[in-house]
Each structure stands twice: as C-alpha cells, then as structure tokens.
Computed example of a mutant assay.
Amino acid sequence: MLVFEFKTYAKSAQFVAIDEAIRATQFIRNKCIRYWMDNPKVSKYDLNKQCAILAAQFPFANNLNSMARQSAAERAWAAISRFYDNCKKKVLGLKGFPSFQKDNRSVEYKTTGWKLAEDRKSIVITDKIGIGRLKLKGTRDLNFYQPDQIKRVRLVKRANGYYVQFCISVDREETILPTKNTIGLDMGLNHFYTDSNGEQVENPRFYCQAQKSMKRSQRLVSRKVKGSSNRRKARIQLSRIHLKISRQRKDHAIKLARCVIQSNDLVVYENLSVRNMVKDHCLAKSISDAGWYQFRVWLEYFGKVFGRATVAVNPAYTSQECSSCGVIVKKSLSTRTHVCQCGCVLDRDENAAIVILNRGLSTVGHTGRSALDAGNAWEDPISTSVGENLLEQIES
C-alpha cells in the first residue's frame, strides 16, 4: 500500500465544508464509542449499523458519504480491538481504554464519495457536505495508477493547510544487487548511531535547534486572551514549528534508512522499548528528539522493499559485553572507551555495535562467524527478534 499526499487549494467556503466533514467524522466515531460502552458485546458490524441510525437522526451526519461514516466507525472499532488485544496480551500499565476524540483532523472516503479528474490534477468530493472540486499540487504522478487501485482518499487538516492523501493498493518491490555487507547499529544520543565498522552518524537534534523560536511562540500564545483570534493565530504559528520538526525528523529517518538498507544485505539493530526509556525524565526529551522508533520502522519497510534482512536483537548488556571474548566489563555512562583484559580496546559504541551484529548473525544461523569477516549476503527479508521462533515471526 502506497500513500501519496498532495496539498490542495480551494476557496474558503470549501475549507469550511472540509472542517464540517471532519467534525461529522469525529461525532460518529465518538457516538460509536459511547454505543460500545453502553453495549460491551457489540461487534464491528453493529457499529456499521449504528452509522445508518445516526444518519437518520442527525441531518449533518446524513450529509456525509455513507462510506465515510463507515470509516469513522472503523476508527472506533480499531481503538476497541486494540484495547482488547492489549488485555489479552496482558500488557503492563495502561491498556489503552478507548476515549472520546477531541481534535480530529481528517475524514476518510473509501471507493465512493469522490471522483478523480481525467488529468489527475483535481478531485471532486461528491457528498452533500458541499466540498466540491479541490486542486492538487504535488510531485507524485497518479497517471501510473488506475482509479480502482485507489482504495482510500483522506482529507487531512494541518497547521499549514489542507492535504489530500491517496491510499493505492500496490506491492512495491525493487531489485538491487547484493553487497555482501553486514552491519550492526548501536543507537545513541551523542551520535544518532554507531555501526560495527566504526562509522558514526551525527544526531541532528531538530527539536533542540528549534527550541528558541518555539519558546518565543509559546510565550506569545500564553499572552493572548483565551478565545481571541490573536490567540488562534499564535497557536497556528506554534503548530507550524512543531510540524516542521516532525517533517525534518521523518525526512532524516527515511533518507538514512534507505541508505543503510541499500548498502548492506543484513542490518542488525537493538529492539529498544522507547516507551519505557522516555520514563527517565532526564533523557526523555533527547530520546524523543532522536526518533529511534521511526528510524526502525523505515528500516523494516525498506528491508521488505529491497529484499534485505533486518534483525532486532535484545539490547541487554550490549554496552558491557566484550565483542572479542564475550566477558562482561562493567562501565558507567561516562566511560566512553571499552577496555577488556583480553586486549580489546574500542570505542564504547563501536564495541556495542559489533556485539549487536554478532547476536544478529547467531540468530539467522551464522553461529561462530566473526563480525569483522562476515560478508555473505542474506536472502530472507524478514525482520526478526532474538529468542523467538523464526517461522512464527514470518507468519505474523
């Protein structure tokens, strides 16, 4: 599934209609959540039936396309099913009980309620809301795909305007020559990562760089009167700063992950639990700013696209274990050099990256191979975790 995004340009009345459709979607989702709270044994199909009842009761809900109403009910069911799955898996802490949405920013249409122009440069929303024709501006070309391949169309509201997203049913696969290289990645805060070859990538720290302008915008928001138009404008300015940071972080993760995957046949990284790591209030901001999880998601995605193997290993004691003899050498965070009694002297992060690579090689069946001379290509593009059955992970 590919997602193409275009910025849309229209009249102010059309943007007001988009806001109305977004509010109707939020209303239907919250009503479905309330219906489930009152009737806990309802199913996904019962929520879809509830959409027709809401359309008969409320005229503004009836103006929304029927499949858009079903998409809102599916969002409610996604939150409910996620809560059930967390309860079955006995996830520690909060289970994510479904809550009412207060700031929805998108409306989603399925195969009806919209019509794409022949030149693929505009789209017409055909429901009773009154959105009409929207011009599309972007670098993607929709002429390569048939209209029946577009399974979803989303209208998204952001701080700097409105966007149209197309979800296209396409299996993306690209063939590249094997490099016969393997690499282990140790994520860090001083450097974004250090690989098993000793190379380091600097941490961009986009959030820290924008903190000065962000604090200024936050002060402007706090000075304005609540409910005033000036406060609304100040909030939009602050939202644009946060939007720019998120886009910078995403762009950095995509480009770096693609480069790593194309340069190596096997990529091994730590299976970090970022949710637990950010509980440390001293490092929470720096960890969130690094964007490790987003980088991992794109590593696994490009691994499937280019047919590369990605392996997630247990991060326990990777910084303490010696990459040469396997002895645990305890060291504090301030100690940046690994010195072992076997004579191994390496940078702390490079030693951890080699340990990570060795664990990954042992997982995929290369037991006994050294991290320095392992160079055979690995053909199975499956992301795995150490200690789990490989067949079960492939099926999942």
Rank of each mutant, 00 (worst) to 15 (best):
A56Q: 13
S239D: 10
A78S: 12
N181P: 00
A13M: 00
N143H: 11
R34Y: 02
M187N: 06
Q393K: 04
F97R: 11
F6W: 04
G291L: 03
D148H: 13
W77H: 06
L333K: 14
S12A: 13
G138I: 11
R133I: 09
A309Q: 11
R275N: 11
K233N: 03
I261V: 15
M1V: 08
E199R: 14
E173N: 07
S222C: 01
K285G: 06
R82T: 13
K121C: 14
T112L: 05
E20S: 14
V274S: 07
K151R: 15
M214L: 14
L361P: 07
E300H: 10
L361G: 07
I168N: 00
L64D: 00
R205P: 01
V153F: 02
A374T: 12
R348M: 00
I328Q: 07
C51T: 14
S43F: 04
R219M: 04
S99L: 11
S383G: 09
H252N: 06
V153Y: 00
Q26D: 08
K250V: 01
L155P: 00
S81R: 13
Y207F: 11
W298N: 09
S66E: 06
L64R: 00
I123M: 08
K233G: 02
A68E: 06
D373L: 09
T337I: 09
E300P: 03
Q50S: 01
D141Y: 07
L256K: 10
A55V: 02
R336V: 06
K137M: 14
D251R: 02
K137N: 15
G161Y: 03
V274Y: 07
V339D: 01
I125C: 12
S286T: 02
D186T: 07
L94M: 13
R120F: 10
A253E: 02
G161M: 03
R140A: 15
N230K: 13
Y45W: 10
N351W: 05
S217G: 00
F15D: 10
V225S: 12
I131Y: 01
A377P: 13
V278S: 04
L64A: 05
V124D: 15
G130I: 06
L47I: 08
E174C: 00
C325D: 12
F306K: 04
A117Y: 04
P315H: 07
D103S: 08
Q248H: 14
L94Q: 15
Y109N: 09
K244I: 03
E321N: 06
R219L: 06
V364H: 05
F6I: 12
K102Q: 13
I18V: 09
P381V: 05
S43V: 04
V260T: 07
I356T: 12
K331E: 05
F83M: 04
V3S: 13
W36P: 01
P59Y: 11
F15Q: 09
G343C: 12
K89G: 01
E350Y: 01
K128Y: 05
Q320S: 11
V201I: 14
D265N: 07
S66W: 01
S239V: 03
H252Y: 12
A24Q: 08
T8S: 12
E20C: 13
T363Y: 10
L283E: 01
I176Y: 10
A68Y: 03
A374N: 09
S286K: 02
H338W: 02
I287D: 06
E379V: 09
T310E: 07
E108Y: 02
S213M: 08
F97M: 12
Q165C: 15
C342I: 03
G198K: 04
R296I: 10
R258C: 02
C87A: 12
